[in-house]
Design a protein around this nucleic acid. Structure first.
Lengths: 252, 252
DNA sequence: TCGCTTTTTATCTTAAACGAACATATGGAC
DNA sequence: GTCCATATGTTCGTTTAAGATAAAAAGCGA
């Protein structure tokens, strides 16, 4: 069984059961425990699972924000990126925020903005922005994905279809050096694509660790992005390509 | 049972009961008391519980459980009503929970139910049920109303239109003695009406203070309700009328 | 207050799980 | 063919979870 298949099997099982055990997985998928551990580590790096002794569980996500500070992965970079992205957004704007911890950081960074209209399919973002009284929050419907507070499914797509916003602020699970934005979930990808289409400008927020990650589904290309806010771009070639595409890169 | 599961079970129990005892937990979760103590210490360090001799309680002061004071109003009645309503709902059911503090209490009371499918337009309900891993949560979209975490507007109506559930669990702002259910917000009323239509059975949860309130918009009549769970019905005549209508009244 | 019981903390122990490093395929690119 | 990257398995020292035990602390009734 190849890695890709194994990862999605593990993800499916985790979604179904809430948790997975390393040794059990090793037995079921007929690979060494060490291999499973590597898989779990990868899935955790992408924020899809959280390690526990003996296996992994779905991230606490929605259920307990501010429980541990597990969310603190690359926290400083994310905050800096979020602040810069927030600067790109003027008061009185309408925008979309999708799923991802970086977009959640953007939601935090928008606390001082006035009179925004924010559409989101991220329950955490909704909770965060609820504390900004001068901001209308519209929640796109959908099935709650506990791992990250995302609302997915065709309900979300249906809802987003009714909006045309000034900015789409999107995250991505991975970015490859050719400039493709990647994600794990085809459903979420569909939403992201729809959002990019429905927005007058697209802002991509992603820290540089995303360049070392992998994910199976393509969201879009950096060519379709207007502003790319990140902490480091590992390849000079990619920066040049962004210039050609007209994608403004903001390094923080 | 792994640590993570144990911690969330303890949290859920603490939310439901208000306090937990170390020895009882050790017995229930089938681990040594020592282990439970370690768990409690961890939860307290995170500020989710407070130690007392023999166990732990919900932190006093800060309303972890409640946002406004309204929630504290008639808290005991609401909890009793919610528990009774939860008994009416079997495992594996699909249901709708609308806006209101009493329906939020029902969401809490459903913490031990298995395999539910819950549709809600109440952000608080979504947050509460997110901690029950064996429960699919579908959020109906809409504009966030900060006063009560409700999602309102035609987006919500659009979403609900796509479901047919076993139970509608609804609250009401007021009930008058002729048996009419009333609310303040015409938009929310539209959602509630739609929900009643889309459900095979309707459960109304409302404490007796609702009989002394007034509200301008009519949701429905008690005649359309299958189960009415409350703590007191002030009028003998209304009880008789419910009997005529086939509305089962459960007093707690 | 004293003394008894229960609970808590501290420390130790065992078995399981973990990560790092190394070894071994596997499959292109040249 | 060689070289290189990647994926997987293996070994080994380290870490962690959780039960057990004994001493300290807290609660409680007389």
């Amino acid at each position: 069984m190849d890695t890709e298949t194994r990862l999605s099997r593990i993800r499916a099982l985790a979604q179904a059961e809430g948790k997975v055990m390393a040794t059990a997985l090793a037995h079921d998928l007929d690979v060494a425990v060490q291999t499973i551990r590597r898989d779990l580590r990868q899935l955790c790096a992408a924020g899809l699972l959280e390690r526990i002794h003996g296996g992994a569980v779905l991230p606490s996500g929605v259920s307990n924000i501010g429980y541990g500070d597990r969310r603190a992965l690359n926290r400083d970079s994310k905050i800096r990126i979020a602040r810069r992205a927030a600067q790109l957004i003027p008061d009185n704007a309408s925008l979309f925020l999708n799923i991802g911890t970086t977009t959640e950081a953007v939601a935090h960074a928008l606390h001082a903005h006035r009179n925004l209209m924010v559409v989101t399919n991220n329950l955490n973002v909704a909770n965060i922005l609820a504390s900004n009284p001068s901001c209308e929050v519209v929640v796109a419907g959908g099935s709650l994905r506990r791992s990250d507070g995302g609302l997915v499914g065709d309900l979300a797509a249906l809802a987003i279809d009714r909006f045309k916003v000034d900015f789409a602020v999107i995250g991505a699970s991975a970015i490859d050096l050719s400039g493709d934005l990647l994600d794990f979930d085809p459903e979420e990808v569909r939403v992201s694509q729809q959002v990019i289409k429905a927005a007058r400008a697209t802002i991509l927020v992603a820290d540089s660790t995303k360049f070392t990650r992998k994910a199976p589904v393509k969201i879009a290309s950096l060519a379709q992005v207007d502003h790319f806010v990140t902490d480091r771009v590992p390849s000079e070639a990619l920066i040049n390509r962004c210039a050609d595409w007209g994608t403004k890169v903001a390094l923080v």
